[in-house]
Amino acid sequence: MSERGLTRGRFVAGAAGGALALASGGLIEVLRRRSAFGYDGQELLGGTLQPVTPTDDFYVVTKNLVDPRVDRDAWRLEISGLVERPRTLRFEDLGSLPSVEQETTLECISNGVGGGLLSNAVWAGVPLRALIEEAGPKRGAKRLFFHAADGFTHSTPLERGMQRTTLLAVRMNGELLTDRHGFPARLIVPGAYGELSVKWIDRIELIDDGRKGYYEQQGWRAERVHTMSRIDLPAEGKALRASAPATLRGVAFAGDRGIARVEASTDGGRSWRRAKLDYAPSKLTWALWSLPWAPREPGTYELVVRATDGEGELQSTVEDNSVPDGASGLHRIAVTVQA
C-alpha cells in the first residue's frame, strides 16, 4: 500500500514540478528576450558609419544580464552628501531646468585598437554643474560619487562634474533615452571613457574621501580617453585594383581634446599623407576622415593611420591592450592590390 501511495505521490509531485518548471521556463524566456545578450558589445564598423550614430546602432557595454527598465514615476534623482541643500528630483522636475544640446562621442574603455565600441550622438539635458551649484557643495567636497539603479557606481573629481560639458542627459538624438541607453537619465562625461557616463543614474553624492566605484575598485582608470584612429574602408583583406582610385575612410577620436589632424600611410608607416577631415563638428566628437588613394603596383600593402589631438599630441604608437586605462597603438590593416 505504501509503495503505491508513494508512487502516486511521486506522480503528483512530478506533475507539480513539471508545471513549476514550465512556468519558470516561460519567465526565463521573458528575461532572455529583455536581456542584453542581443546587443551587449556589438561593434559598428565599416562603410555604413554615419556622422551621428542612429540610437539603435549606438554601442552598448553593460555589466548587466538584463538592463533596468526604470519606471519614470518611481524614479528619483537624489543629490546628497556634502551639500548645503540636499534635494530629490523627479523626472518632471528636470524639464523645468535649463537644458542644452550637445553632440558627444563615447568610447568604451575595453575598445581595442581598430575596435567598434565607440559611437556619436546628440545628447540633450541639464548641465550637471547647475544641479550641483543649486545643492551648494560644502567645503571639503572633493569628488562626486554616482549611483545607478542597477547598482553600478562610479566617481570623478568635483571639477569634472562642474565642467560646462558634463551633462545629465535625458534625450538622445532627439528622443527620450531608450532603456538600454539609460532611461530616464544618464550622465555624459566628455573626455572620459564610457563607463563614467553612468546610465540609469539615481543618486549623486558629494564626498570627501577616495571611495571607488564598481570598475574603479577593479582597477580600471577611465578618466582620460587615449587618442585613437581607425581605418574602416577598405576592409581588412579587401582586394583592390591597381590604378583604380580608392578612398581610405575611418574615424579618429580624442575624448574632449578634438582631432587636429589625421594621417594615413600605405607603406606600413614609412611615409604619411594628411587625410581630409570630412566631419569634425566639435572637440567632443569623433572626426570622420578620408584620403584618396590609387595604388600603382599590384601587391600587398599595409595601411596605417594615426591622429593628432587638439592639443597637438600625436597618438601613441605603443601597442597596449585596454587594461587598465584603455588601448593604445596604431591601427594597421593589410590589403591586396591586383593587376
Binding site: N64, V66, D67, P68, R69, V70, D71, R72, A74, W75, R76, E78, H147, A148, A149, D150, G151, P184, W200, D202, R203
Partner: peptide, 12 residues
C-alpha cells in the same frame, strides 16, 4: 551594499 539596486528604478 548590493541590495540597493532595483531594475525597475525604485529609489535605493
Amino acid at each position: 551594499p548590493a541590495l540597493r539596486s532595483n531594475y525597475g528604478g525604485l529609489p535605493p
